[in-house]
Write a protein that binds this DNA or RNA. Structure first.
Length: 754
DNA sequence: TACGCCATGTTTTTT
DNA sequence: ACATGGCGTA
């Protein structure tokens, strides 16, 4: 019981009241993770609950892992059997074991957002739509938000409200794309991130026996970061605990920063309605930060209208004021940060790990990184381009994925001509289309290729099929590591990378080796029972970059976005890039007009700091390679000025727009002349034709000489000659403005005018 | 079909 | 600055 003696009163309440629904509203730094972990420990130790019956949901793998460690410290290895993980990973696991109920195989693939985007891109292309109007990002967001509100494509198409919405947004085909996207995913035996939640809802809705099973199993449900759950997630947890009523949610409405992902503060209000016996506990004492930091944070968040009543306070020392630094450029900002870190380290005995640099967008890491590297300070960048998003890794993963799930269209497209085997886009399209037209699996087309694609490419496809079949055999007979190395070697990927002796090529080769190492590690982990490649892929699909821990060298400065800093704390925190339009983000303001969420983000950034906090902004910054002028963020003025100390040591010079920093030396003159000479060659901007708004490509299979056509870029022209000699039909068209062009009919979008 | 040149767009955050 | 994609050429 000794671990309980360290708790204050509301924390204690939160730990020991394990029965019935509970909502713990926890201010920043009030020890919410501690309450959550002790609550679980209490359930196991004092209440004798089997860890097997406890489900604990978090938002990141990192948070889950940390919590498991902390619980193990109190209850020992007994915590092994806890169901603890992110929403996505826990329900992916459940979906795999119940997949047949939904008509999926249990080895379904999980599409990451890159896969989703490229699938959308091909659909848009196939529909003959303009991908400038139907941008993959925008379309995916729309689909994602529909799924997060549990609107299926059937409901979407049936509801005139969505139709009107899309028509107003000049995107009338959205419903059709949504439908095609879902059908393609299903046919590929794939689920995207949102499907994992959506389909869990479907599973529990349509299969009461399954729901009962898990309701019985999870007698206690705990949810961390409740303010960031979306409707889909909320309904799952609500259903699971509707029998036992033992649900505890922990969150802070002031730290809700994932509305763009469908997070819904209304969940907090709904929760009170759905569970009338709710016990509400407020944790308001902050143990993390100095008084100055807590008060400054309060002065910021007080500007938001829609917050729950809560007053965070601290008994800590007053502490230093927030230092505000203005720099002339992003590079100087980086230099300031690194010298301030250096000064603090030498004067006050801090280590690298006591510092974090937080920014709004990942791209801001570059300037900071450069400065830290120059001054020899160890650092680590979290997020950004993760290991698993690298091209070479995705390539090998695509081979592994395809061998296991031959319906996976995205992986297929990735590897069919990699390394080059003479199977071009045309052949790929034909194969995919054949699978759809005959309503058969893609694999069936591939194995009977002569029937669908007679000709030169067929041989290559047959070889590809033989290759994949041999991979499948090695996957069945060997463990994950041996199978993966076999595939890496025999696919020709390793060979191709090995041949590349550039620094980049070497790096990529090493990355592939690293992936293989990771697989080896997986195989060698004693806990893991299923050592097959399939098991590894399932394990890895939902893992992000947060996994790569370097145990030997742990003393580094942390660089990350504010989003990924949630839940963490550091003695010294730099919030950089406080410029209007960057933070608050222009994008966010114009698309969703949500200043309050940006402000909550600012609040999160401030409350990461324990002892010292720095704000920094630059008067000019590079964007798309161009220097732009910047205004200080409105957020700086929103902090009560009595908490701010303006540091005048830096930033006395004014920015020089349009040229790089530093005195114009030989190099920069040379560079400038080079630029000028390049500019001297006038680039004539091509005056492309603007296709009419209702431009739709026609079926060109019956195109005849003499027909008048419209091309989306070249405008109007007359078909001069048809060339049917080759494998691909071509048409020579004389355009009014561009002269004669030869167009491949399988590619070109042409509208037949008459 | 493969390769190289050039025009174009991109950056908000994450599972 | 950088990646992508279209188009022309071999």
């Amino acid at each position: 019981m000794d671990y309980l003696s360290t708790l204050n009163e509301p924390q204690y309440e939160g730990v020991v009241n394990t029965e019935g629904p509970a909502m713990i509203i926890a201010g920043a730094g009030s020890g919410k993770t501690r309450v959550l972990t002790y609550r679980i420990a209490y359930l196991i130790k004092e209440k004798g609950i089997d860890p097997f019956n406890i489900l604990s949901l978090t938002f990141t793998n990192k948070a889950a892992r940390e919590m498991r460690e902390r619980i193990e410290r109190v209850v020992g290895l007994n915590a092994r059997n806890l169901w603890m993980g992110t929403f996505h990973s826990v329900f992916a696991r459940i979906l795999r074991s119940e997949a047949d109920r939904l008509g999926y195989p249990s080895n379904f693939t999980i599409y990451d957002s890159d896969d989703s985007k490229s699938l959308i891109k091909t659909i848009v292309k196939e529909f003959g739509l303009d991908d400038k109007v139907y941008k993959p990002n925008v379309v995916l967001n729309r689909i994602s938000s529909a799924k997060n509100r549990l609107v299926s494509w059937e409901e979407y198409l049936a509801n005139p409200l969505y139709e009107a919405d899309d028509a107003a947004a000049q995107k009338p085909e959205m419903g059709r794309i949504y439908k095609a996207y879902c059908q393609r995913c299903f046919k590929a035996n794939a689920m995207d991130f949102d499907d994992l939640l959506f389909n869990t809802n479907v599973l529990f809705r349509d299969h009461v026996d399954v729901l009962n099973k898990y309701q019985h199993r999870f007698k206690y449900v705990l949810v961390d970061e409740f303010q960031d759950t979306n409707v889909s997630q909320y309904l799952i947890t609500k259903k699971l605990s509707s029998v036992s009523q033992n649900i505890a949610v922990v969150g802070d409405d002031a730290q809700s920063i994932y509305a763009f992902r469908g997070a819904n503060i209304e969940n907090i209000l709904n929760f009170e309605k759905d569970f009338p016996d709710l016990r509400v506990i407020k944790l308001e004492q902050n143990y993390r930060s100095t008084q100055n930091i807590v008060k400054a944070a309060n002065s910021v968040i007080a500007r938001n209208k829609g917050q729950l009543k809560k007053s965070v306070w601290t008994a800590n020392d007053e502490g230093n004021r927030i230092e505000l630094i203005k720099s002339i450029s992003d590079n100087e900002e980086g230099r300031f940060v690194s010298s301030a870190i250096f000064e603090q380290k030498t004067q006050n005995n801090y280590q690298n790990r006591d510092f974090a640099v937080l920014y709004r967008t990942n791209s801001q890491s570059r300037a900071i990184e450069e400065a830290l590297r120059k001054s020899g300070i160890a650092y680590k960048i979290y997020g950004g381009l993760s290991f698993y998003q690298r091209k070479e890794i995705k390539d090998l993963m695509a081979y592994l994925r395809f061998a296991i799930n031959t319906a996976d269209e995205q992986s297929f497209r990735r590897i069919i001509n990699l390394p080059k085997r003479g199977i071009g886009t045309t052949s790929v399209e034909k194969m995919v289309v054949a699978a759809f037209e005959h309503d058969i699996p893609l694999w069936e087309v591939l194995t009977n290729i002569q029937a669908f694609l007679p000709g030169r490419a067929a041989n290559a496809v047959e070889q590809f099929v033989t290759l994949v079949k041999s991979f499948q055999i090695s996957i069945e007979t060997k463990d994950a590591y041996e199978a993966a190395s076999h595939i890496a070697k025999n696919s020709g990927l390793l060979k191709e990378l090995y041949a590349d002796k550039t620094v980049e090529g070497l790096n990529r080769y090493e990355n592939v080796q690293e992936l293989l190492n990771a697989i080896k590690e997986f195989v060698d982990t004693p806990d893991v029972e299923d050592k097959s490649l399939g098991a590894f892929l399932q394990d890895i699909a939902l893992l992000t970059d947060a996994d790569n821990e370097d145990p030997e060298d742990t003393d580094f400065v942390s660089l990350m976005t504010i989003h990924s800093s949630k839940g963490l704390e550091f003695k010294n925190v730099f919030v950089v890039g406080l410029e209007e339009d960057l933070f608050p983000s222009q994008m966010m303001m114009s698309s969703r007009a949500d200043l309050e969420e940006e402000r909550r983000l600012f609040y999160v950034a401030i409350t990461r700091a324990q002892e010292n906090l720095y704000f920094s902004y630059a008067l000019s910054r590079y964007r798309f390679g161009r220097l732009i002028n910047c205004e200080p963020s409105r957020f700086i003025e929103e902090v009560d000025p009595s908490f701010i100390f303006v540091n005048t040591r830096y930033g006395s010079r004014e920015p020089q727009l349009g040229r790089r920093e530093g005195p114009p030396g030989v190099t920069s003159n040379f560079a400038r002349n080079l630029m000028a000479s390049k500019k001297a060659v006038p680039k004539k901007p091509p005056q492309y034709h603007k296709p009419s708004a209702d431009f739709r490509p026609s079926d060109t299979s019956n195109l005849q000489e003499g027909m008048k056509v419209e091309h989306p870029k070249f405008g109007f022209g007359k078909v001069h000659k048809m060339d049917t000699s080759g494998a691909n039909k071509k048409a020579k068209v004389i355009f009014e403005d561009f002269g004669e062009k030869t167009l491949l009919l399988s590619f070109a979008k042409l509208r037949i005018v008459e």
